[in-house]
Structure formats: C-alpha cells, structure tokens
Design a protein around this nucleic acid. Sequence first.
DNA 1: CGTGTCGTTGACAGGGTTCAAAGCACGTGG
DNA 2: CCACGTGCTTTGAACCCTGTCAACGACACG
Lengths: 239, 239
Amino acid sequence: MIESLISNLRTRDALTAPDEDAVRDLFQHENRFRAGEDIVVQGSRPVNSTLLLEGLAARYRLLEDGKRQITVLHIGGDFVDLHAFILKQMDHGVIALTDCHTLAAPHRRLQAVTEENPHLTRMFWLLTLIDGSIHREWITAMGRREIKGHMAHLICEMFYRYRAVDLIEGQTFRFPITQAILADVMGVSTVHVNKTLQILRSDGLLIWKDGRVQIPDLQALETLAEFDPLYLHFQSESR
Amino acid sequence: MIESLISNLRTRDALTAPDEDAVRDLFQHENRFRAGEDIVVQGSRPVNSTLLLEGLAARYRLLEDGKRQITVLHIGGDFVDLHAFILKQMDHGVIALTDCHTLAAPHRRLQAVTEENPHLTRMFWLLTLIDGSIHREWITAMGRREIKGHMAHLICEMFYRYRAVDLIEGQTFRFPITQAILADVMGVSTVHVNKTLQILRSDGLLIWKDGRVQIPDLQALETLAEFDPLYLHFQSESR
DNA sequence: CGTGTCGTTGACAGGGTTCAAAGCACGTGG
DNA sequence: CCACGTGCTTTGAACCCTGTCAACGACACG
C-alpha cells in the first residue's frame, strides 16, 4: 500500500535499502475518512503527517461568504500535509473528496529522519517542493490561460500523476470528482465547468463518464494545454 | 546586508551561534542585475541559489502567446530559487523587477548544510514552504476573491513581509512596481488594475505615489482583504 | 524638443456569473 | 415493481464584470 509513496520517491531519485526501510518505519496507524470529512482541520497543529493511500483529497481555503478554493488535489502516494511537520500550524484544511484510506507518520519520527538521514530528508523536502511547483502551475493557469486550456492542463496533470503511481489503465483513469468540486479547483462557476467540459467532449479531446476519464489523443490535449510535465519533476536526479 | 535573511529566519525560530555562522558561510560572490534582466532562466540548472539582498524580483511563467504570469514576488531577505537546490531544474524564470543586488550560495555548500546541520536544513526547508503558503493564498485570491479584495490582500501581504525585514517606515513602504507588472501578478489586465487602484484610493484605503505605498488604515484594508497573516508563519516555533 | 514609459480614460464586445428549472441516474421503502 | 427523494448534470436567459482597443496626458531623459 505504501508502494505508491516509494514509487513516487523512486521516480525522482534512487533509494538505498536503508532509505526504504526508514520510509517504511515512518508510519504508525491507519485511518479511514468518509467523503466530505476533513482529514486535517484548518488552524490545527497536527502531530502526524498523513500519507494518502487511496482516495482523492484536496487542500482548500474557505472565504467568509462560503466560497471555497481548492489549491491542490492529492491522490494515492501523496503526503497531504507533510509541510505541517515544519510549518506546525495548518493555514488551510484538507478534505476527503472520496472515501480515503491513510497512514499517519508521527512528526517525532520525521524529526528523527531529519536528524539521521540527510538524503531522505532532501527527498521529503522534494515532495513539498513539487507541491509548490503544482501551485505555481495552477496560478499560471488561473491567471493567464483560457478556460479550455486550464481544464486541459488539469487533466494532463492528473494523467501524469496517476501514471507515476501506476493508476492509468489504457488511456483511462478513475477521477471521481463532481463538476462542483472541479469548479472550486479552477476558481470558476459550476455552470462554466459544465459548458467547458461539453466543448472538450465535442472536440473529441475528452471522454468523461462514471467517474472515469479517457483521453483519446493525449498529444492533442497537451497541445491545447501547452502542457510541459517538467514541473512535476519526474526526472531521476541525484538529490 | 545578509541581516534580512537572518531576521527572516529568527522571526520563525531561534538560531544558535553555529547556525548563524553556517548561514554566513554559505555565500560566495555577489551579483547585480538591472531591472528587466533574468536572475534565473527557465529551464536552467543553477549551481547556486540566489539570496536577494536588495530590490524587487519575481518568479514568472511565460505562455506561448506572450502572456506572463507572476507566481510570487521576492524582496530583500528572500531566497529566489532555494528550491532549485533540490529540484535541480528551473520550471520557471526569475526576473529582476528593479535593479537587484544578490548573493550566491553554492549548492555544494547547501548540500553540506543538509549533511551536517539538521536544524538549519529544516529552517531552509521552512523558507520554501512559506513560498508554497504564499502560492496557495494567491490561488485563493485569484479564484475566489473579488478584485478589490485580491488587490487589498496583496498589499497586506507585502506590508507584513516588508515589516518582517524592517522596511516599513511609518505606515509606508517602497513598492516600485508598475501597473502592468501588477496585472501579471494578479492575472488581470492593466486597465482593470488601474481602475481597481482608483477605487481603493477613493475609498481612502491606499495612497500610492512615486513607488511608495501608504496604508492609512491597515485594519480597514485587512477587513476588506479578509487578511490573516497566519500563512506567512511569522510565529517563532521550535522547528 | 522629441522620444519612450507609465498612468488614465472611454467605448464596446464578450466571457463568465447567477438564478432557476428541468433532466437523469440511482437507491430506498412501501 | 413503482413512487419518491437525492445528488449531480444540463440548459436557458439576463446581467455585469473584465478584456481589448485606442487615444491622450504626465513626466523623465537625452
């Protein structure tokens, strides 16, 4: 189950056997969350960081008028709040968008890793930096891409991220997200999401049914999105 | 000159004398960049990380049609590309918005810090995580705030960040940024930036002249912006 | 005094929001 | 087996926020 994290790390750099053991020793208890439940509450001070094993989760901020903005989506193999180990207090919440299965890594043990294993420390640092890269890409999409490109870009991102943890079957992946949630991701209205999806569908760029996304022509979708996967930093490097 | 970085760190956690020495030993040569010059080129593989001593810089992405989106602003005391130490390749550029004065920290030395000084490593990690927090806040502002609130939020952020490095005089700070650049920050048109500024000015929330921003009533501006400085993580904590 | 940069303004088009209602799939209970 | 409720998607219409275009003014500089 923890393999998705290992594979997330291995994609970016080799792990020694002791590294891998240290990763496995990190986790204590598991948890399950129902769709709609908060995994981490805004303002809280977690003592564990949460590895998502299965499910779809999101970091989000709420505004006073009830508007919600999602700032990143998390899939299996992602730490949803590794940054809290250093930041201490959550400046946003993390919600389970579908039923989620998680593992908890006590900050005490993460602390030990940073004291004893510099390489693994840098690898964990890396994971949080990739979150940052994704943030920047989203900012760019929200500010300067037309909505079709934004949507296409998001789909490409999820395709590559699911592929990295081996969850692509054919040109298809499970992506059980409602249009209302998608609207909170993209910062637009649900109506607009719906109409944009219809255009992408009628252009033959996307088939989206029963919580599954199929990409008939990845090349075409990437062109529309001006997608460059560099920002996901899948290259294996000595870090 | 390097004091702004020290103060940035000290705001967040105590530094021991050896920590501080290690910080000072990190830097090698200085550089100067003219306004408009790239400090770091997108796609490059820096071997140094750049500390901004003085000036205003920005991380940015360009789209094919020439549109630009700025993803974060940097002021004195910020590392503009500390993340490149771990990410290796730049997925965006960094540009000098005004004349900039910088110091270079060789990655070789940063590597040594991560091998020898776990606490300082976590402090540097922290700096990159705060960049991430700022990204999330910007995403929220772009997606779900009305433009007045977005602008107010940005001004509040810069006010708090300048204050942390002691660059607030009275209720005033130097912020020599054109409206066109501001448009690339907020992801809107220059015309719209101009009209929004006029509203804020006529509401008495902002005085902006000769590259200086004055905030007559910080409380009122924060209320409009729904500003909560938590995300800048100025609290001193044991990290 | 000409040139260039930046800020300001007005008119107009259109992209995107809001509101409201209808359609659809699915599970539940009678 | 059907009626009904629920959550999600789809549609249409009115409205307005925001972008584009184009021009002008203010100012610094050589």
